[in-house]
Design a protein around this nucleic acid. Structure first.
Lengths: 208, 208, 208, 208
DNA sequence: CATGAATGAGATTTCATTCAT
DNA sequence: GATGAATGAAATCTCATTCAT
């Protein structure tokens, strides 16, 4: 198989990836706006500027598209977090960056949490969605565990039950975000964010 | 208006309440099983042992029925909490009862959280739903604030930012529950519940 | 449960049967005209003068409707045959009536065979259809066997392998009809019908 | 027109025939498996290892492809029959070979009859299909007539109405096959085949 | 009050056919 | 000649809502 075939192969794959990306992005936007159940394939197509038939050309069905969206969210989130955290040296800084990323997300991409919560409602209805959700949560906890571990190794964080602490940290961050997402006026977000970050720092940093 | 008219009025209202209760209970069950979007009016009617037409006789439309369900959940929750807490004297005990109620709910009525999360997805789509959700969250926080206040007054709890602490407590409890609801095998639930209760007690009880 | 409830029960069932009959008749007509695969639910609804939704109200899906149609055809055919044959006393006459019924059907209800052949194409695709087709064929053979048996008992027909002879008789009748249905000008139908009836009579009637 | 042009013409025609043959064979296989209406152009293309676009390059549309398939079946059947019959000398043997060919086909190529029956359903919907079906039936009858004629000429077969007898023979063979195709367990196929062959031999062979 | 038959809009999905490359 | 991405019409099916009885 010569260069041209390889090029064709490449091109084929490129179009495929481009379209799937295009449609996934459109899905993200549309689901964020209309919600998991109220959006239609037509909405996706319109948003992407493509025909409805094409949506089914690149995704077997609606579920497939949504599953892909959730996986994509997971991949991107992990990538963004790793990139942001990677710049820091100190585990304390890493932990704070992790938290800031989460708290900032609410401000910058409100849709994100609406979508993620939408996906939660699927766990008792769809086994594949359940698994994807579990994976998303696990990757958050793992990220934190990695940071905590590093801190302990460096003697900066106190010894602790890693799994439990990670779960608690996720709980606090996420619980706060949910309350804020549901009620913007429930409290002063920036103020509470600062307090929580201090709280969590106190929780893990070794006392002298 | 005579006695008979009044009696009719009374009777009418009684049937009204009975039917609305019947249908709301059916809705709770059906939404828990099939999910917020996948249940039909016929499901409700069948579950309640009534006709589909009646559903629209007692509720303007599907949204109305669901809104009523959410309000009913709020009312009942508050009632149950108050009753349970009311038996205790010590604010520490009250706080622990509050937490136990929440944690036990997952075990005894798994549907409850599926339904509540389903309702969360409505806040950016439906103003009335948003308000009902806000009210539900607020009543949880208020319940805690009441307990904390009592503890502070009695010199058992340390002085603190009440609103913030309530929000954090709700976050931890709820965040933990969500992680468990989504992934039953993520951790040992009973074990983590104990740790969290200790954690929250330490957070608020005055050190000697 | 009083008289009214019973009446309602009756009425309910009446509407049900009426509508199902109405829709099945419409299906018969439409399938005959447009063919098994080219007709739509809309066609049925239009033909019956009802809405498309109602078709699905009375039949789970398209397959269900078609299966019902095939069963109905079987039931009606058996009834018509039995009625026609019942009038005769002599087994020879019964056999001839059976054959005449079949041959006349082509003239009077051309659609019938188009529909039956359409159903044949389903046997290797749909298990339920297969079973219904088998049943239809079996009921034809059984009808003939009954007549042959009676003739043998009365000493009019010669002794023979009943199952085989029935299968052959069905083959000849049906094979002739198919050739005629496909090509109206292949032969002089009336003429051939007479010959075949004589042929079959010779096949079964005891020689003196 | 020069040699090269002619050669191009030839080459073009060769590719044309090759591709059309490729696609027709793929169609035969796919229609046999999925049925006349449930196969798609993509199925054909995939089976043939070609692109969907090519199907329309070599056939105007789906109908055209199917029509070509039916004609091809006719051509091949006639060729196979002629070849098989050609080896025999005795008309009795020829007749038996003809019948055996038909009966064996059910065993060796079950798809064949499913496809042929599928095509029958088209006669009242599509004039070209009707004509192709008529031709197929006619070529069967003609084949038999040829054999019968030869037998009569040689004084082996009795004098008879050729057209009628051919039609009856086709009916019996085909009717038996249909009953077997629809219900494999209706009777012992091999056993019935023997009986039928004897029956038909008795029908045409001159009694001494 | 109660029923459930009836409607019809709208959603997902499939696929023959076209056409730019 | 060959490809397969793209289109869009059309089909099935669902269901909230209405309304005659």
């Amino acid at each position: 198989m010569g260069v041209i075939a390889a090029m064709n192969e490449k091109t084929k794959s490129d179009i495929m990836n481009m379209r799937r990306g295009q449609l996934t992005r459109a899905a993200y936007k549309v689901v964020g706006q209309k919600g998991y159940y109220d959006f239609t394939i037509r909405d996706i197509a319109r948003e992407a500027g493509l025909s409805t038939g094409l949506v089914h050309y690149y995704f077997k069905n609606k579920e497939d598209l949504l599953l892909n969206l959730l996986k994509e969210i997971n991949t991107n989130m992990t990538a963004i977090l790793n990139k942001a955290i990677g710049k820091a040296e100190d585990p304390r800084e890493k932990l704070n960056i992790f938290m800031m990323q989460a708290f900032d997300l609410v401000k910058n991409e409100k849709d994100y949490f609406y979508i993620v919560i939408d996906f939660w409602t699927q766990v008792n209805k769809n086994e594949r969605m359940k698994r994807a959700n579990i994976k998303l949560f696990k990757s958050y906890r793992d990220e934190i565990i990695k940071i905590l571990n590093e801190g302990i190794d460096k003697g900066i964080f106190m010894k602790m039950d890693l799994d439990y602490t990670a779960a608690v940290i996720i709980s606090i961050i996420q619980g706060m975000i949910i309350q804020y997402v549901i009620d913007n006026n429930a409290f002063n977000y920036e103020d509470y964010v600062k307090k929580i970050m201090k709280h969590i720092n106190d929780l893990v940093i070794k006392k002298k």
